[in-house]
Computed example of a mutant assay.
Amino acid sequence: MDAEEIRAIFKFSALEKNLISSFGIEEELFLPFLLSLKSGGSWSYASEETNSIAVKDVITFYDDENKIGYTLEKIYFFVDPKVVKEEGLVSRLEKCGTKEERELVERPYFITLQAKKIIFAEVNPSLKKITVRELKKKHIQLKGTPAYSAAHELEHLEKGEVKGIPIWTFEYFKEQ
Rank of each mutant, 00 (worst) to 15 (best):
Glu28His: 06
Met1Gln: 08
Ile75Pro: 00
Ile140Trp: 01
Ser39Asp: 09
Asn124Cys: 08
His156Trp: 07
Glu158Tyr: 14
Ala54His: 03
Glu158Cys: 09
Ser149Val: 02
Trp168Lys: 15
Gln114Lys: 13
Ser39Thr: 09
Phe30Thr: 00
Ile75Met: 00
Val123Thr: 03
His139Gln: 13
Glu5Asn: 11
Ser149Gly: 08
Ile119Phe: 00
Lys67Cys: 09
Glu175Leu: 14
Glu155Tyr: 03
Glu4Ile: 15
Leu127Val: 08
Arg107Tyr: 11
Glu87Asn: 12
Phe77Arg: 04
Glu73Asp: 10
Lys143Gln: 10
Tyr45Ser: 00
Glu106Asn: 15
Gly144Tyr: 06
His139Thr: 13
Thr145Pro: 00
Phe77Thr: 00
Leu113Ile: 14
Val132Pro: 02
Leu72Val: 09
Ala151Ser: 15
Tyr70Ile: 01
Leu15Ile: 05
Gly164Glu: 02
Asn66Lys: 14
Phe23Asn: 04
Ser21Asp: 13
Phe78Gly: 00
Ser52Trp: 00
Thr71Tyr: 09
Leu93Pro: 04
Lys56Met: 09
Ile118Ala: 01
Gln114Phe: 07
Ile53Ser: 01
Glu103Phe: 08
Pro125Met: 11
Glu28Leu: 06
Ile111Glu: 01
Asn18Lys: 11
Ser21Val: 10
Leu93Ser: 13
Asn124Tyr: 06
Glu86Pro: 03
Asp80Trp: 01
Tyr109Leu: 14
Leu154Ser: 03
Lys128Gln: 14
Glu175Ile: 11
Leu127Phe: 07
Leu31Asn: 05
Gly88Gln: 09
Glu48Ala: 11
Ser21Phe: 02
Glu158Lys: 15
Asn51Thr: 07
Ser13Glu: 08
Leu72Cys: 06
Val84Arg: 06
Ala54Met: 02
Glu101Ser: 12
Cys96Trp: 12
Lys159Gln: 05
Ser126Arg: 14
Glu65Ile: 12
Lys38Gly: 05
Ala54Glu: 01
Phe77Ala: 02
Val162Asn: 02
Ser91His: 12
Ser149Trp: 02
Phe110Leu: 13
Glu65His: 13
Ile165Asn: 03
Thr131His: 07
